[in-house]
Amino acid sequence: MTTPTNIPSLEREDHILDQLKEKFGDAIKESRVSRRSRPEVTVAMEKMLEVSRFLRDELGFDRANGAGGADYLRDQKMEVIYHVSNLARKETRDIILSVKEIIPRSSPKVNSLVSIWPSVENFERETYEMYGITFDGHPHLEKLFLIDNWDGPPPLRKDVRIPTD
């Protein structure tokens, strides 16, 4: 049981989200801070490239920790989630910002962020083969792990059931 004085302040995280909301207004669909060092923001798909450039150049998020997808079959939507952090300033290396975009399940196409964070190249390739989401502007959008392994529909989609016998 923590006493009130133990609750860490969420100033840094709130400040990041405030700057984003101030600059992009309605393009920021949702934002919250789930706990210390973990701000989350949902961005409209069309503005994702601009928001990412702002994050890298103005707010100092120079490193992408990972990228992945999620499938919400019931709501007929899919999500692409990027986790970004900063490497240059030691004091804020612990913050990981989740940047999400929601895309319709019937036509999953988004802009690739390889031009902003080159390290997401392999992660976007994997999301393409596992979910069928196309990334526009990706230098080599091909299958990464599934060649010769699986020929069927994108396996991580929720409506693909793998037969076991």
Binding site: R38, E40, N65, I81, H83
Partner: peptide, 19 residues
């Protein structure tokens, strides 16, 4: 909910994103 955790494994940063 969602959570993201990371750990320094022998080969580098290993991270788990759980929904």
């Amino acid at each position: 909910g969602e959570s993201y955790s990371r750990v320094e494994s022998a080969r580098g940063e290993c991270s788990v994103y759980l929904i």
